[in-house]
Design a protein around this nucleic acid. Structure first.
Lengths: 94, 94, 94, 94
DNA sequence: GTGGTCTAGACCACG
DNA sequence: GTGGTCTAGACCACC
């Protein structure tokens, strides 16, 4: 298996690379709705990035309704609702 | 007159206090549409907080359509569109 | 009717919101000196927060002389002594 | 050097034992004004207790003016102001 | 039954 | 990579 990691040479920001990597795992079904994600600390050490980077990536996924956070518990894969690109922003209305 | 600052004792997060302070200045008309805001560095030293805090506050205002950023130029007060609370989330649709 | 509860979206810490809510009930006279407060467990379920949050709120009220605790018995509303000045400062954000 | 640790058999609460241990180090001059203390995580692993215990101990020392905390930076030994008693003796060394 | 202590670990705010 | 807040439990000491 090759390690799907972050390319530190690439001009693409780490947080964006990480966001894509995590997003894939959800879309691949590797991580399923309701699953808990690795903790922020684990993601930091797995991908060798700082906490800031991890949080930026997770926050974007959260905004996009891919994951949700529960204080003191963790970050979880969301149930797929209507996640087409232009719908994402209205998520949370109802 | 009391100094309109950030209360470091308060349990309210700095970034949120700052967001409110900046928002007021726009709503008061102290800063008008098209005006350039102080730089992030200036805001840091004015309010005695780190750049992280300043950026969190500005990003929220940006999401809410109160200000907009231009890379390499600065942050500016936006023209008031439909900024009622529930409209904010649809911002970006059009 | 809106439920006077804890705003889980707000950036204000739960323990601080709860402290204010309980403090009000004493100041309103809804709870009188000598009255026993609901148990920590009840407050947890009423406000949908963990015991940690409840204890943080109660401990602050205890420090401020608003309530007192008796081991194995419960938490009670204190008799108002000289609580004006001191309380005024900590009440609210500023 | 023998390791001055926490007696897990003793009925004395861990947080209180820890508070005394840390207090001694300041009073002994082992830790001097302005010194940064080990992080909460380090204290946890050094003394084999949970973070709750460490924070209870540090908060008491903080209340007593022995140490102070800076958000995002760490916990530091306070300058001895008027801390009565034993401090009076060493005061003047610095 | 209550409040008191403690665990293990999460996310949040900050520099 | 720090301290701050929060969760969801556990066992203990006390009425």
């Amino acid at each position: 298996m090759n390690f799907e990691g972050i390319d530190k040479i690439s001009p693409v920001p780490y947080y964006y690379q990480l966001e894509q990597l995590l997003r894939e795992r959800v879309e691949n079904g590797e991580w399923k709705p309701g699953d808990i994600l690795p903790s922020e600390a684990e993601l930091c050490s797995t991908f060798r990035v700082s906490r800031t980077v991890v949080r930026q990536a997770l926050n974007k996924l959260c905004q996009d309704g891919i994951v949700y956070k529960e204080k003191g518990r963790g970050t979880f894969v969301a149930k797929p609702k209507l996640q087409e690109k232009f719908i994402q922003r209205t998520y949370g209305f109802y």
